[in-house]
Amino acid sequence: MKISVIIPCYNSEQNIIRVLLSIFSQTLAVHEVIVIDDGSTDQSYQLILNFKEQHNITNLKLVKQTNAGPASARNHGITLAEGDWIAFLDSDDIWDTSKIEIQQKYLLQNPHIILLGESLKKNKTAQIIQTISFNQLLLKNYFITSSVLVRKDILPNPPFDFNKKYSEDYKLWLEICHQHSCAILNIPLVKYSQNSNNLNNSPQNLSSKLWKMEKGELENLRYCYQKRYINFFDWIILSVFSLVKYLRRLILKYIK
């Protein structure tokens, strides 16, 4: 397996070196790391360049682009990737040192799986690897982008919908899962930043962010209906279910 790691980077000077170290400290080396600097205005680009030169790293590609968002940055990185598998990592998340080795082990044991992520909620009694069906994914997004390892040749073109600012990754997982076998591991693989999608802000900002996320999810369900992945009745039921989840999430956030 040749694995290319894609990192969208925007004003990440506080974390980006720790992120890179978590990749280059892997027990199983990746083929290449591609960092797309998405129009950063801080010292991110220079820090990465210094890191590359100081450690004489030849398989680290650093590319600048005008700010266009993480979806565009990831798509850009995928077009440059030489690997036959793609891993994603956000610029404030950290991989466990054995993340790639563990995922490769289970992918080799289960060659029918083409997308593998991590279960966010670990269950000691659950099986280590759990297949996620398309119907399960319609009810809940099981795949966290920084944990995903996916086969490159099955990705649509473009992979991520750059017109979406929320839930564009979920849309891609739905597209893949409708046609292919996907799974999650009940093993810790990633340490997620507490600042990622932080919703613990003012009530007004909280409500705004939650609603934008909900709109993104509803758009994904409509997309599945338009593509005839689901019928009209399922679309309505799933949309209502999604709105109920949104209201519950909103209430729980407000009463905390």
Rank of each mutant, 00 (worst) to 15 (best):
V190N: 00
N163F: 14
F143C: 04
N201M: 09
I184G: 00
Y166P: 05
L155N: 12
L206S: 13
D161R: 07
N200C: 07
L155R: 08
N197S: 15
S167C: 12
S207F: 14
Y166A: 06
K152D: 02
K209D: 09
K212G: 03
L149D: 06
I144S: 04
I176Y: 00
V150H: 09
K171N: 12
T145L: 03
S193I: 04
K122G: 04
S196Y: 07
L174I: 07
Q194G: 12
P159M: 09
L120G: 09
N186R: 00
K124F: 14
G117I: 06
L172K: 03
R151A: 04
S207C: 14
K165H: 13
C182D: 04
S208F: 15
F134I: 04
K165C: 06
N197K: 04
W211G: 03
T125D: 13
G117Y: 05
F160G: 06
R151F: 02
Y192W: 01
M213E: 11
Y142I: 00
S193D: 05
S193H: 13
I187S: 03
P158K: 09
P158L: 05
N205W: 12
L155D: 12
S119A: 15
E175K: 14
L138D: 01
N198R: 07
K215I: 14
N123P: 01
Y192D: 00
S207A: 14
E168V: 10
F134T: 08
L115T: 00
L120E: 10
K191F: 04
K215Y: 11
H178F: 08
V148L: 14
K212R: 15
Y192T: 01
F134R: 06
V148G: 01
N123C: 06
N157D: 08
T145K: 02
N195E: 11
F134N: 05
L172P: 12
I187V: 13
K121R: 13
L206H: 12
S181A: 13
F134W: 11
Q127G: 06
M213P: 03
Y170P: 01
K165I: 08
V190W: 00
